[in-house]
Amino acid sequence: MKNGEAGHQAPQEELATGERSTRNRVARSILDHGPSTVADLAKRLGLTQAAVRRHLDALVSDDVVAPHEQRVYGTRTRGRPAKVFALTDCGRDAFEQSYDKLAVDALRWIERAAGGGAAGEAAVADFARARIEAQADAYRKAVDAADPEHRTEALAKALSADGYAATARDAPVGEQLCQHHCPVAHAAERYPQLCEAETELFSRLLGTHVQRLATIAHGDGVCTTFIPKVGRGPSGSGRAGSHRTSSSHISKTSDTSASASKAGRNPA
């Protein structure tokens, strides 16, 4: 280290944990303690005020926190009150929520209320179909408005608008619909009926048999659905054969095909 550089180095703790980790600690401290000044945060986290300001600038830019004028109760002292930093709605959403547990608890209640066993599984499946059907209108309009060769791409764009970060890409003798995010992944891990209802909907919208090759809920990085190009249409006579051929081709190019088990199985 050159002479004079020591005073310009970030605190050792930041070097050890990394910028992102320290930034998360700043946001977490605000969550735990409420709106805080730079001095409050520096004291709690053992950082310099300059370091805290740097992280707060980044958090403000990311809409995680927002500055506010500090409320003063009683006699106001001379000078401007210090700014306090509070979490935005976006910032709060970044921290853990209990929505996943709530969803699983609700599905478990439905399963038990129906009597458990096969009846309980059927009740959850009915709920899953009703849920996906309630949001299907936008998907259906997008697919119907697209040319036949662009329907998978149109469906991907409609799914992305709902937060699924979906893309469409060419695959041997067909296409792959890839969903890079799943809002219900944790619930679907316990209740694959959610994945199955979604797969059924894709099949109806696209007018062909589709195959779910992988799901985030089953531990894969992406939810992947194969859509064959050959024999499209509800009554395509070549549909089943083309499906078998496409599956063998896909398995050679994607490790995710080995994950097409219960969590991502195609019920059609």
Rank of each mutant, 00 (worst) to 15 (best):
P67F: 09
P234A: 01
A214D: 14
L194S: 05
K229V: 11
A16N: 06
A114R: 01
V222I: 13
L41W: 07
A82W: 02
T48W: 03
S29P: 04
C223G: 04
R232G: 06
H243Q: 15
R131I: 02
R80W: 06
L155M: 09
V64M: 05
T152K: 01
K229W: 10
V210F: 00
R151C: 08
P35C: 09
E5S: 10
D40I: 15
D63A: 15
D255V: 06
G116A: 08
T77V: 14
A145V: 10
E149S: 14
D255P: 01
A128M: 04
D162M: 14
E96G: 05
A240Y: 14
R244G: 07
A268G: 15
A16F: 08
L45T: 07
K2Q: 06
S237W: 02
F127D: 01
A130T: 05
R232P: 11
A214L: 01
R20C: 03
L102F: 09
L47P: 02
L159V: 12
H209C: 09
A51P: 00
Q193F: 03
T225H: 03
A217W: 00
G120T: 09
S160N: 12
C223M: 12
E153Y: 02
H243S: 15
S36T: 06
R131C: 05
V143R: 00
K43S: 13
E189Y: 09
I132N: 05
A10F: 08
V104L: 11
G219N: 15
D220P: 03
S254D: 13
G221H: 09
V38W: 01
D100A: 14
K141G: 01
S160H: 05
V104Q: 12
E198A: 10
E5W: 07
L15G: 10
S248D: 08
R169T: 10
R80H: 12
A165I: 04
D40A: 14
G117M: 02
T225K: 05
E153G: 13
G117L: 09
